[in-house]
Design a protein around this nucleic acid. Structure first.
Lengths: 233, 233
DNA sequence: GAGCGTGTTTAGACAGGTCTAATCTATTTC
DNA sequence: GAAATAGATTAGACCTGTCTAAACACGCTC
């Protein structure tokens, strides 16, 4: 049973939407994510259901089955491996990596993926700080990072993970110097849902909607930690 | 005008068949090469003709236009770069490289191809000894090698290029120890069209049809050249 | 609990690429 | 130069994935 790249994209979208909203996914949400109309989605989820990859209840929503999740995790693994390869070896700009990997992931064989792992030295996370599922598709921690929103105003933290699926978000953060590894101090949390931070190597205030800040991962810097002495995990 | 991978495969097949037979290509030959039926070919070459990529005369045959050749050379470039990457970095067995590259070549962006060139150190040939077209799609020498058939019985030569598009041929040669770099001596040329050689690291006689031998590239070994002293080009 | 709006599904058409069956053309053979 | 044959094309069907337009269901409001 060979799954078309298009079908795989639907599954991926369902996976990420499920993850984001923590409830069955609506037709129109999938349509937006994949870039098609709602009837196309109904069509496709029906066939995915027949293949046992999703559970589809008309008018109610869609959920991934275990088989569907396996397909997606395999894809996620390849995606993140490719991203790692593209940044580390080919020097592709941070912001373009996602797009390229999105195409290639469908055409990288399982065997090549394994070889790529070896070549890259079994990386644990991709360049955005997201964990790479292992050969058995187990993800170390599906959401291991501590969201920026968990920290207090005045604290200084190091960015560990950055959201990147949305192009505008990704580029905005990038342009403001927010990458994995960036050190920043939490300046304020406004009542209208904005988190204000000052990145280390930029001097101005950057405003981030809490919705985005919730998906930025960070770890606290110990009081003494000033510069590059980061040997602890 | 985005060309589908399928259409690109047709163009590639036409290119290689033209190259092989040095005359307009027949429908059924394309059908065999691509793995579809003749009517499908007629269909496709009509649309390729409309796009100005081939010149198609019903009942006569198909020829690539310059635009078509550009498309193919871009593909050949990516194909050979990928093959180089797969063997050199990922250690993919010689015999599997072609299949993998055939899939991936359609999905490697131009930009990524350029980056891959840099990463690989601007290789001139792929692992089979075929030249890689440069950025402007100029192939140094489309057929630079001297065919094995040009040498005399009794001579000892080093294999420089090996045919690999046909799976059976490729694996047969591989199993008999014929790879780029193999040293072999020409034992006999039989009247029925067989060239017999003895590879250096194998001890038995290998029989090769002249049709295949014609596409094996080799260079003569100077009398004195016995082992590994190969510093000349 | 009737009406309404949002979101979903059905119906039907279309585009790309494929197939089989049937027809046609070129070329070879006599 | 007519018949036979190998190869090519047309005709028509099918599958996948997409669309628009129209019908439908659910949940909310009054």
């Amino acid at each position: 049973m060979e799954l078309s790249p298009v079908a795989q994209d639907y599954l991926k979208a369902i996976y990420h939407l499920e993850d984001e909203h923590a409830r069955p996914v609506r037709t129109v949400e999938i349509a937006d994510a994949v870039g098609v109309t709602s009837p196309s989605v109904t069509n496709m989820v029906e066939t995915l259901d027949e293949h046992g990859l999703v559970e589809y209840t008309p008018y109610k929503g869609v959920e991934l089955t275990e088989a569907g999740e396996t397909v997606v995790l395999n894809l996620v693994r390849k995606h993140r491996l490719l991203e790692t390869f593209l940044t580390e070896c080919l020097d592709v700009p941070w912001t373009d990596v996602h797009r390229e990997a999105d195409h290639l992931e469908h055409h990288l064989s399982d065997e090549l993926a394994e070889r790529l792992v070896d070549f890259l030295g079994e990386p644990a996370t991709d360049p955005h700080g997201d964990p790479i599922p292992d050969t058995d598709l187990v993800v170390a921690d599906r959401r291991s990072y501590t969201p920026l929103t968990e920290y207090e105003v005045g604290e200084t933290v190091v960015v560990e993970r950055v959201p990147h699926r949305d192009r505008d978000v990704r580029e905005h953060l990038f342009e403001n110097g927010l990458e994995p590894g960036t050190k920043l101090s939490l300046e304020a949390v406004t009542p209208v849902g904005i988190v204000e931070v000052v990145p280390d190597d930029v001097d101005n205030l950057v405003a981030i909607p809490t919705q985005v800040a919730r998906r930025i991962g960070a770890r606290a810097i110990s009081r003494g930690e000033t510069g590059l002495d980061e040997s602890n995990l």
